[in-house]
Amino acid sequence: MGAHNGPTLITSVQRAFRLLEAASAHENGAPAKQLAREAGLPLATAYHLLRTLAHDGYIRKLDDGGFVLGDKLQALQTAGRDQTLLSRVRPTLAALRDEFATATYLTFYEDGEIRVAEIVDGPRAPRVDLWVGFQDAGHATALGKSVLRELDDESRKEYLSRHTLNDLTPRTITSPAELLRRLDSSPVAPAVTDLEEYALGTVCVAVPVYSGDTLGALGVSLPVDRLSRIEEIRARLLPTASRVTRSLSLTI
């Protein structure tokens, strides 16, 4: 029974993939009969698989009865593209981690939020305890402040109108006006720092990066007793950020 079920399941998966491939060739949709013919499947089999794929969001049925690729498959394609891009820069992030024994972070500003895309750490370079998510701590992290520094005035105001500047440590800046003043007068621009503003005992430095038109930040965290190295690290971050931006902006 097991030997019989295995090949049957494999065959069903193969048929579903063939239908998806056929549907991908028709931007404006195609009827089940045409997809069945192009996939080399009996019409009844195609109907059954299309219903299943549509139920799970991999195929979408149009009002005219045609079928196109669904939102779920589009999301997988986007995620796959993002993973491919990140795979290009992980060696660069790891090299930075190994050189300075610092956890390395990459964030992006997407849909109005600052999101962590990658963290490269290790036994000698532990990451900071992310006890508050970056979406709620953009004002207190070097990575978040790097993004805010690069945004235009309208985008900054819009972001700050949606986020409360909570005092995460006694050093956290909680005044929007003071935060913007310090961002615009950063003595290490275009880099910015977080001097125990997110977590006591930890300092960070970050610089801007881009993935195409998407703004982000590259940064590192280190114990406060190594603060004296922050200028050396900043000097290395700038050319590294340029390499990361070039890698992320290449067409896949």
Rank of each mutant, 00 (worst) to 15 (best):
G2C: 14
A3I: 14
N5M: 11
N5I: 06
N5T: 04
T8C: 10
L9I: 04
V13E: 12
V13Q: 06
V13H: 12
Q14P: 01
F17D: 06
F17H: 09
R18H: 04
R18P: 03
L20E: 04
E21P: 15
A23M: 13
A25T: 07
H26Q: 13
N28I: 12
G29H: 06
G29P: 03
Q34H: 13
A36E: 00
A36M: 06
G40M: 02
G40Y: 05
P42N: 09
P42I: 00
A46M: 05
H48V: 11
T52P: 08
D56E: 15
G57N: 08
G57V: 08
G57R: 12
Y58H: 14
I59C: 08
L62M: 07
D64C: 13
D64Y: 07
F67M: 09
L73T: 10
L73D: 12
L73W: 06
L73K: 06
A79H: 15
G80I: 14
R81I: 10
R81H: 09
D82K: 14
Q83Y: 07
R88I: 00
V89W: 02
V89N: 00
P91C: 01
L93D: 03
R97T: 01
F100H: 03
D111E: 08
I114N: 05
I114E: 04
V120A: 08
V120C: 03
A125K: 00
R127H: 04
R127G: 08
D129P: 11
L130E: 11
F134W: 13
F134M: 15
Q135L: 10
Q135D: 09
G138C: 09
G138R: 01
H139G: 07
A140C: 12
A142L: 03
L143T: 15
L143Q: 12
K145W: 05
V147F: 05
L148F: 01
E150H: 09
S155D: 12
K157L: 06
E158I: 03
Y159K: 05
S161M: 04
H163M: 11
T164Q: 15
L165K: 14
L165A: 14
N166V: 13
P170Y: 13
P170A: 05
I173V: 10
T174S: 15
L179V: 13
R181K: 08
L183I: 06
S185L: 07
S186T: 12
S186E: 06
S186L: 08
A189N: 03
A191D: 02
A191M: 02
L195E: 13
E197M: 11
T202Q: 14
V203C: 10
C204E: 05
C204A: 10
V207R: 00
P208V: 01
P208F: 02
Y210N: 11
Y210P: 06
S211Q: 05
S211Y: 03
G216A: 07
G219I: 01
G219K: 01
V220E: 04
L222D: 07
S228Q: 12
R229Q: 15
R229C: 11
I230S: 00
E232R: 00
E232F: 01
A235G: 06
A235P: 05
A235H: 10
P239T: 06
P239Y: 02
A241Q: 04
S242E: 15
S242K: 13
